[in-house]
Design a protein around this nucleic acid. Structure first.
Length: 646
RNA sequence: GCUGGCGUAGCUCAGUUGGCAGAGCGCCUGCCUUGUAAGCAGGGGGUCGACGGUUCGAAUCCGUCCGCCAGCUCCA
């Protein structure tokens, strides 16, 4: 009986039993056949050599030939590269035992217990990677056809057991009853693998082994430490080079280097995870915080400040003591137990509960920029991106169920204002009910629907993140993309039915009865620390004028121009702009370079000509010499730039 | 926290077999008085991460601890 394949363009193609993806590609055209890597039958991605009816018993099924241009095709391509890497390692270190080798974002890794022909463990370092790459190139040049075999569980256990492949045996043992055990073979190499794979190893065009690091078997620190080889593969050398360039550029922009170089912040071993903010960094901090205040006040938020240290009873009540204590700085004095707050929500609940609330008071929007402290494990600290001291642009909205959608719309407005202004695109994800949750599924469904509806009402779309919500409620996650195309989760909005319950929060409704409010936790920047780390890397330290700690530096040519330079600086400062004078006895080129390196947006050179005509010679950080301008003219232009946040 | 690597001047880094702690940049001083990305000369600056051990002698060898880096795990 024939199968009807519905192709991506809507065309329907009837194929006879036994027809494979490769046959279909060949029938469509030689070019597609050449580019074909795998096929998609219905929802499943399969080898080109699989007969279509093997995969789907349906008489009519959607079908597509995948090339390296399809994300799913690229995954197959990379997964085969993973096998090629394992094969190469096996050739160089024959007794290597393989664990798992999945595709990840931007590449792949393979965890393995690397052992030489004598069976002794081998510790790989960066110097060993070129040899592995060279061997991979051979495997690719040999162009081994890749075949799929279905084994019985016993066969698999016996074969892998014989080779001492303890990890593979464990994986086989963990497969669910009745699961198909598949093995992929290429030349002398075979591996337990779900697949699918490319038709042959020769299809790989551009790859690189990136690094080696330790990783525990199954992520469990009580189990053996394996070596994880990271690699990646791309459709072409150009794309690989582009990827490697981005990696280099990211290193160059690393906020841990740029921040101290620009005098923004300091990290000291005296206070691991607690950054020191220097005058310029704190200028940027205040600009961001004040901008946030301005935006939030316009949205009806009220700012509060709550205690940094509170008694453990509060944390017991909020549930933190039970679930979050490992991440809290706790202290004991005079038989009393205290903790430094890791979050603001419990304190905001106390404020809410401090008065009898009417439905007329809602929504109540409490914002706070206070300091939080979380005891992050030492190995997880990372510059500003993961710290122990953090300040969120935090707020809790206490609302009636009917108000959820409207309040979420307000949060979306804030997110759009902030990330739109910064030129950072973002994706919205709706994280729904996880397997472990509290509350009524019907309430969850209403809440999820309200979040989705609010996003759509704002003219935005969202990606569903099934089961990724918090246990107490669904949430929206905003994933922003920086100038290098990297994604960061900064803003979130979470619906919470749990805290109002724990703190017995209520409002008097129009009906005179008590009702439970819903809480929305939300942050737009996330934490100021992390956000500033992201911003430093996004702008590579070259902040737009409105955020630049120093917006202009005045450079007198010779000593006799110093007084004029000071007068100019005073005038600019008087207009509310941030300006410095660099009158060091260095050549003008030297001081221009210094200002460029410090990423100052404007350099104002003043010599005889400028002093005579009461002008400044303007040089832009990008764009070079702009020629002479009157001081009021320069001030007006810079103020317009700052006000426009350009 | 676990595994591995690394801690030498503010920064980037040399430092041989265990034998007088160095360079470049930055900083300070002087000279130059400067025209759009590094002028010249001189100077200050170090408990070589901390503590303990081995040794006639330790930046160097050993141990413990602290910090940083890359992962694992978790997350903003």
């Amino acid at each position: 009986m024939s199968v009807a394949l519905v192709l991506p363009d809507g065309a329907v193609r009837e194929v006879a039993p036994g027809t494979t993806g490769r046959d279909v590609a060949a029938a469509i055209g030689p070019r597609l056949l050449r580019d074909a890597l795998a096929a998609r039958v219905g929802e499943r991605v399969v080898d080109l050599a699989r007969p279509v009816e093997d995969v789907s018993g349906e008489p009519r099924v959607s079908f597509a030939i995948l090339t390296v241009r399809d994300p799913a095709g690229l995954e197959v391509y990379r997964h085969t590269t993973t096998h090629v890497m394992a094969q190469a390692v096996r050739r160089l270190y024959p007794r290597t035992r393989l664990a798992i080798g999945p595709v990840i974002e931007d590449g792949f890794y393979y965890d393995m217990d690397v052992r030489g022909s004598d069976g002794r463990p081998v510790r790989l370092s960066a110097e060993d990677l070129p040899a592995i790459e060279a061997e991979m190139a051979k495997v690719i040049a040999e162009d081994h056809p890749i075949s799929r075999e279905v084994w019985s569980r016993e066969e698999a256990r016996a074969a892998f057991g014989r080779d001492g492949e303890v990890f593979k045996v464990e994986i086989v043992d963990d497969l669910p009853e009745g699961a198909e055990v598949t093995v992929y073979r290429q030349g002398e190499f075979f591996d337990l693998c779900r697949g699918p794979h490319l038709p042959s190893t020769g299809r790989i065009r551009a790859f690189k082994v990136l690094s080696v690091a330790g990783a525990y078997w199954r992520g469990d620190e009580k189990r053996p430490m394996l070596q994880r080889l990271y690699g990646t593969a791309f459709a072409s050398e150009e794309e690989l080079d582009r990827y490697l360039w981005v990696q280099e550029e990211a290193k160059r922009r690393d906020h841990r280097r740029v921040g101290p170089d620009l005098g923004l912040f300091l990290l000291r071993e005296e206070a691991p995870g607690f950054p020191f903010w220097l005058p310029k960094g704190y200028t940027l901090w205040r600009l961001l915080e004040n901008w946030s205040r301005e935006l939030q006040e316009a949205e009806g938020y009220r700012e509060v400040r709550t205690p940094i240290i509170m008694r453990s009873e509060l944390w017991e009540r909020s549930g933190h003591w039970g679930h979050y204590q490992e991440n809290m700085f706790t202290l004991r004095r005079d038989q009393e137990q205290f903790a430094v707050k890791p979050m603001n929500c419990p304190a905001h609940c106390l404020i809410y509960a401090s008065e009898t609330r009417s439905y007329r008071d809602l929504p109540l929007r409490l914002a706070e920029y206070g300091q939080l402290a979380r005891f992050e494990r030492s190995g997880t600290l990372h510059g500003l991106l993961r710290v122990r001291s953090l300040h969120q642009d935090d707020a809790h909205l206490f609302v009636t169920p009917e108000q959820i959608q409207g309040e979420i719309a307000g949060v979306l407005r804030l997110v759009e204002r902030v990330y739109g202004t910064l030129g950072m695109p973002y994706e919205i994800r709706l994280a729904t009910r996880p397997d472990e949750y509290i509350g009524d599924p019907a309430v969850w469904e209403r809440a999820e629907a309200a979040l989705g509806a609010a996003v759509e009402a704002a003219g935005r779309s969202f990606v569903l993140a099934p089961k990724e919500g918090a246990f107490y409620g669904p949430k929206l996650e905003f994933h922003v993309t920086d100038a290098l195309g990297r994604r960061w989760q900064c803003a979130t909005a979470q619906l919470d039915y749990n805290f109002p319950e724990r703190f017995d929060l209520a409002y008097i409704g129009a009906d005179g009865a008590h009702h439970r409010p819903v809480m929305i936790h939300r942050a737009i920047f996330g934490s100021l620390e992390r956000f500033m780390g992201v911003l430093i890397e996004h702008f590579a330290g070259a902040f737009p004028a409105w955020l630049a700690p120093v917006q202009a530096v005045v450079l007198p040519i010779a000593d006799r121009h110093a007084a004029y330079a000071e007068r100019v600086a005073g005038e600019i400062r008087g207009a509310g702009l941030r300006v410095e004078v660099d009158a060091r006895p260095e050549k003008i080129g030297h001081r221009i370079r210094a200002a460029q390196v410090q990423q100052v947006p404007y350099m104002l050179v003043v010599g005889d000509r400028e002093a005579d005509e009461r002008k400044v010679a303007v040089r832009a950080r990008r764009g070079g010499d702009l020629g002479p301008r009157g001081v009021p003219e320069f001030v007006a232009a810079l103020r317009a730039e700052v006000e426009g946040k350009r």
